[in-house]
Design a protein around this nucleic acid. Structure first.
Lengths: 208, 208
DNA sequence: CCCTAACGGAATGGATCGTTCCGTTCAAGG
DNA sequence: CCTTGAACGGAACGATCCATTCCGTTAGGG
């Protein structure tokens, strides 16, 4: 099946392996050293630098992939008819793919590019649309704001154990709790304060 | 008023200033260098090492204070008659004092002592008692477990902006949401999975 | 059988940090 | 006053960690 063999096949395989290893490693620890990625990929450090000019470059690639995945998930969710199902499906998929850790949480550790900012803007627009649609349909508490969703992601991303499977299971548990909490309820206590502003959240995307 | 003056008064003042500065600094960043504490306290590094034999020593002190504060809050809450009010008051006070960041989140960064472990055990017992009382009184969802509370703390501790005031306000906002979510509700979706085990959570307290 | 793409990983250079050390300051006591 | 030592500030030291470079090795492809 593979049109390549031998050395060239190894290289192609490594392209994937390295990206996957990097994803896993930096998901676990955004400050991990390059050597950790090399170890995880069972590859020498040289193999990394043959593909990426620098650590920042690798991080940017990872972040770009995460953002792309985010956009894809949001676009897919937008095709769902029921506003709540669309919204809930979007949130669930983002959390399960750990996209938040891959984007926002990584964004502080390298210098952003205009392209990434643009992608981030698109992701934000799509997320807000899903939120607004659900809110207008009365499927969400009236005192919620779009950026509250970001904070939900942030809170769920904070759940992390050594074991990846357990981490996923726990996130499902608290995601269930939080999704219920976002729905309108007669007994709901009004939320105090306001959601964070884009400026408060966006400091991580500041360029240079 | 002060029975001391001059140099001795400065020293006594510094005792407090240094502890407060350390608290703030390590709350913001658990990996901050000692020099950051010195700067925040407007004090030389020497003044730190005159009081604490090492960074670990300072961290342990901070953690011990946090644990003590935790125990005090829990004991105080236990005197409240209504089980839900006791529980909710306890959670709220812990979150507002940022005790979780001061204890569990710091615990990974230094070598624990038996004394700290003991204190942690007491804190845990008290917290579980408050939880159980509320659960038995029917004030909590039946599918909750004691360690779910720890995860609530963990999630709220993840909310942190540069501005301390905003951080506190946002935590109040999401604490309100979460407290509502913990109450029994007819429409509640059953929580999948189980809360983390003590072993899963306790790895941070392992000694030596 | 010889290139050369691709690899592995030791070596380099810079940055960060905990901790030590020493010269300075200043108030209390003689 | 002058001596003394507690308390200070912060430069300097030594260890560690890391991104990145460099070069000798390997093994398909021609």
């Amino acid at each position: 099946m593979p049109s390549l063999s031998g050395r060239r096949a190894e290289a192609a395989r490594n392209d994937r392996t390295i990206l996957e290893a990097a994803r896993e490693v930096f998901l676990r620890d955004p400050t991990a050293p390059m050597s950790a990625v090399a170890d995880a990929a069972h590859v020498g450090i040289g193999a990394l630098y043959r593909r990426y000019a620098s650590k920042d470059d690798l991080l940017r690639t990872l972040c770009g992939n995460g953002l792309t995945q985010f956009v894809a998930i949001a676009e897919q969710a937008a095709t769902v008819d029921d506003p709540w199902d669309a919204f809930a499906g979007y949130i669930t998929a983002i959390v399960e793919a750990d996209v938040h850790s891959l984007t926002v949480r990584l964004a502080g550790t390298f210098t952003t590019t205009a392209e990434l900012s643009t992608l981030a803007g698109r992701a934000s627009t799509l997320g807000t649309a899903l939120f607004t649609r659900a809110l207008d349909a009365g499927a969400l508490r009236g005192d919620l704001q779009p950026n509250d969703v970001t904070m939900v992601f942030e809170q769920l991303a904070a759940i992390r154990l050594d074991d990846a499977g357990r981490t996923a299971a726990l996130r499902r548990r608290y995601l269930t709790l939080l999704l219920d909490a976002l729905r309108p309820a007669a007994a709901a206590t009004p939320l105090p304060g306001t959601a964070p502003t884009p400026a408060e959240l966006g400091e991580r995307w500041r360029r240079e």
